[in-house]
Structure formats: C-alpha cells, structure tokens
C-alpha cells in the first residue's frame, strides 16, 4: 500500500517537474537514499557501525567505470559484475571485521575505507588516479538513451522503490527481527539461537551491495568519477543521513538523504557561513530530535493521541 503511494508520488513528480536542475537534485536524492537505506539496515537495525561505506559505493562505481570505459563492456553486463564484486569484497572484509564491535568496528571499517580510497587514487592505470576516470558511457536501452533528466530520474527512483520493498520486507521478517534482537542484546540474541556473527556478516554484505548499486547509478549518471567522491567525508555523510533521518527507519533514510542533499544546496545563500549554518542545523536536529527526524515526527504524532498505559492483571487473560 505504502509502496503504491510512493510509486504514485514518484510518478507525479517525474511527470510534473521539468526543470532539469530539480530533476538532477531529485536523482541524487534517490542515489543517496539507496546508500542510506543500506547503511540503515546495518546501523539502525543491526546496530553495527560502518565508517567506510563509501568504499563500497566507490567499488560499484569504479567496477562499472573500468569495465565500460576501459574494456568496452555494456553497462548492463557490467552491473551484475559490479554487484558481485562488491558482494565478494564486502564478504571478505566482513569475515574478520564483524568479530569487532562498537568503537573497534568503527575503527576497522574506517581503516578499510581509507585503504579503498588510496587504491582508487593510486591504481591510476585502471582508475585514472587523482584526475579521475572519464568516458563512462550513459545507459541505453535498445536505441533509447537513459541519460540524465527524466529517464534517469525514473531509473534511479525505480531502484529506490525496489530497495524500499526489499528492506521493508526484510525488516518485517524473521531476519529483521533477528537483526533488531542483536541490536538490543547480543547475548540474548545468541541465547535465542541466532547465529549472531553470521547474521552480522550477511547484513554487512547486503548493505554493501546496495551501496555498490548506488555507485553504479552514480557512475553512469555523471559519466566521470574521481576518488574524492568516495572518501572518508562521504562515508561520514552517509552515516549522518542515517542518523539525521532516523535509525531503524526505512522512511528515515529517504528523509535523511533528502535533507543532506538539499541542505548544502539551499545554504549557498549564506556564502562564507554556509558550513557554519549547515553544522548548526545538524546540531539542532540532534539536540531536539536525537532519534532522528522520522522518530521525532512520529513521536510527536503518537504522543498527541496515545492513551496512558494501563496495567490490568495478567492472569485475567
């Protein structure tokens, strides 16, 4: 039901908005939503932090970039390879990494993100190094070109919709409950028969593959990629989207991605003070709605209509 409403909203937006600047902004929001959604599964639901998620975003982008620009592959053939590559790398990284937890996991993933960034920058024969990888082809379907503008908007938001459905189903399932259980009490989760280390590995891989998909969409949108789009600051931005939008909230990922994509754009009017205002806004959100925008909005709504919790006798049932 929610998905249908969402699809209708996307459709109307896509059909009514004609200014290419706005379409472009919305397309970026879509890509960022996919990133935030993936990380939210890991961070918001399973409670495991990753400070290196931009690495997988970059991996998806560089994989398709290299395959198409250097080796002349069709992007549609490069897509499964890029996703599979992200899958494998994420799995190999997760295997030792998710034995860590808390700050140590943060440090570990941070280190991985840095290594990936250095590889993107230094392996210049493949990645183009600092000057970037140029000549990534736009997507085409038959003779129809899915380059920027409306077609790309629909492509990206179609992917967002699919990612939404996948995540929402996941959350509302045995797997999703197990993820939240790990978040609440890993000890109790294990005592319920959940193989916690295995599940943490798989949710990490899942979120990495979503980031890889976002990377693919990004690469074929801008057709030029450079390491700075996948550095430490980007990882932090994805984390911020999740936290601002709302941990463990699927719609929060959309909200967080939208705010963090639009805000810098609006704040240009503050010229020199842009970053200061940006920081202040983020601080204010965290101080007043520490659980993120979505929870903040929902809580206000629920508080206004919730009845007091009554405690009848449990034996009467």
């Amino acid at each position: 039901m929610k998905q249908i409403l969402f699809a209708v909203a996307v459709l109307t937006m896509g059909l009514t908005i004609s200014q290419s600047y706005h379409l472009q902004l919305l397309t970026f929001i879509g890509i960022h939503t996919i990133l935030a959604l993936g990380l939210n599964m890991l961070m918001g639901y399973a409670g495991q932090i990753s400070l290196g998620h931009a690495a997988f975003y970059g991996l998806g982008a560089y994989a398709t970039g290299i395959l198409t620009a250097h080796w002349g592959w069709s992007p549609w053939a490069a897509l499964p390879v890029a996703l599979a590559g992200t899958f494998v790398v994420a799995f190999l990284v997760a295997l030792p990494m998710l034995k860590l937890s808390g700050y140590y996991l943060g440090m570990g993933t941070l280190g991985f993100g840095m290594i990936a960034f250095i590889v993107f920058r230094e392996w210049s024969s493949l990645t183009g190094g600092d000057s970037g990888l140029v000549g990534i082809p736009s997507l085409t379907v038959g003779t129809f070109s899915v380059s920027s503008g409306k077609p790309y908007f629909f492509l990206v938001w179609g992917c967002v919709l699919l990612a939404f459905i996948a995540c929402e189903r996941l959350v509302d399932s045995r797997v999703g409950r197990a993820l939240r259980a790990i978040h609440d009490s890993e000890k109790a989760a294990a005592a319920m028969g959940i193989d916690t280390s295995r599940l943490k590995i798989w949710v990490f891989v899942f979120s990495a593959v979503l980031a890889g998909l976002a990377g693919f969409l990004y690469a074929h949108l801008v057709t030029f990629i450079s390491p700075n789009s996948f550095g430490f600051l980007v990882s932090i931005r994805i984390v911020t989207m999740v936290v601002i939008g709302g941990m463990a909230s699927i719609w929060g990922s959309l909200l967080g991605a939208a705010v963090l994509t639009i805000l810098p754009d609006w704040l240009h009017v503050f010229t020199d003070y842009e970053m200061v205002v940006y920081g202040l806004i983020l601080m204010a959100i965290m101080i007043f709605v520490p659980q993120g925008l979505t929870r903040g909005i929902l809580d206000t709504y629920e508080r206004s209509r919730r009845k007091a919790f009554t405690t009848p006798d449990p034996s009467q049932s």
Partner: peptide, 30 residues
C-alpha cells in the same frame, strides 16, 4: 535480557528463531 525496543509478540517470535528458517532471500521474496 529482553529485546526492549521490540513488542512483546516480537520477542516471542525471536524466541521462535530456531523453529523457523526464512533467510535473506526468503524474506525479500516473501
């Protein structure tokens, strides 16, 4: 050691983890 953020029913459902078997693909495919 309950799963505090989850509902009473969901707590029991997690307790049923070993008697059910749906994984990532099953959950997404439904």
């Amino acid at each position: 050691e309950l799963f505090g953020s989850m509902s009473v029913l969901e707590n029991i459902l997690v307790g049923r983890h070993v008697r059910t078997r749906c994984g990532f693909l099953g959950a997404m495919g439904r």
